[in-house]
Computed example of a mutant assay.
Amino acid sequence: MYLADSRSTKPAVAPDTGPGRRPAAVPGTVLALGTVSLITDISSEMVTAVLPLYVVAGLGLSPHRGRAFGVHRAMDTTGALLGPLAAFAVLRATVDGYDAVFAVSGCIAALGVLVLVLLVPRRIAPEDTAPPKSGPTLGDSLGLLHRPELRRLTVCAALLGLTTVSDSFLYLLLQRELHLPPHLFPLLPLGTAAAFLLLAIPLGALADRGGRRRLFLAGHGVLLLGYGLLLSPLRGAPVAVAVLVLHGAFYAATDGVLAAATAGAVPAEHQGAGQAPVGTGHALARFACSLAFGAAWSLWGGRTALATAAAALAVSAVVASLVLRTVDGVSV
């Protein structure tokens, strides 16, 4: 999607479509790669979504076992660091680099499925435990929206998701602005992942002390600062590093914090049903934002599209802060 096919004679990055020009049709290869991304994201997010329940209900471990979640998150982030490095190495070492990246990625995915099937137990809880209750239904999730706190969290998550630009678009803008060669493009997510790994723990502790919803809003403010820096006349490697650090800080302040805030808004016995509307609303909103931003890029160009998204994010953050200012008389 972001770099030209290695077998093509066209430039690695196509120029912006100027104002008034008709957007080109989406190539079939882009749709195929998008389908691959969609499927793999569904797979990984399925595991991430049920991990807390699996650790407690499936493995029979105590909830106060925060190490289990910390180890999982650390290993997940390590994978986010190693993936771009592997792509960079493959691009540097091969002639048909893009095809090789896709092939290596497929092999690693197959290895992940093999580990999942062979090493992850179905259930190791003690045999004398009570049988599990039936899972939450769609009606259970929708019924919980009558709770003002959960309803406001759902609205704010969707509102902010609608104005959060996809990571891929942000990296592509960085590459264009700095005129990076194609083989360096995979290293951009590395900066985000490294910043996230360094800031996740301290910002998580800050959320416990200062309020999870407040940190969630502040994280979007940090992202807005990154957008502004990218739109500024400043250029050079330090600007790229600063944008990536701010991007990683955004994820450290929001990834998991929204779920933690949601957990405090619903009874313990309805955690699964309560997480569904907030998480789904946020994910669907970000998907819609990706579609809208891609169309805006085609019509107006990348910088104008980002400026529009930044203005929309600023408005959304203000509205969300007003919505979450008090919930049932309790400050955020």
Rank of each mutant, 00 (worst) to 15 (best):
S6L: 04
V26L: 15
A32T: 13
L33P: 00
T35Y: 00
V56E: 12
A57H: 04
R65W: 10
M75K: 01
F88W: 13
A93G: 03
Y98K: 05
A109S: 14
A110D: 02
V113Q: 03
L114S: 10
V115C: 09
V117F: 08
L119C: 10
P132F: 02
P132D: 11
K133H: 09
T137W: 03
L138M: 15
L138I: 14
L142N: 12
H146V: 14
H146I: 12
R147I: 06
C156W: 06
L160I: 13
T163I: 11
T164F: 07
S166W: 13
D167F: 13
Y171M: 04
L178N: 00
L184M: 05
L184V: 12
L188A: 02
T192I: 13
A195W: 11
G204M: 09
G211Y: 05
V222W: 03
G228N: 12
L231T: 05
L244A: 07
H247D: 14
A252D: 09
A259P: 07
H270L: 06
Q271N: 04
G274C: 05
T280I: 05
T280M: 13
A288L: 15
F293G: 01
W300A: 02
A312I: 09
V319R: 09
A320G: 12
V323L: 15
T326K: 14
V327W: 00
V332P: 01
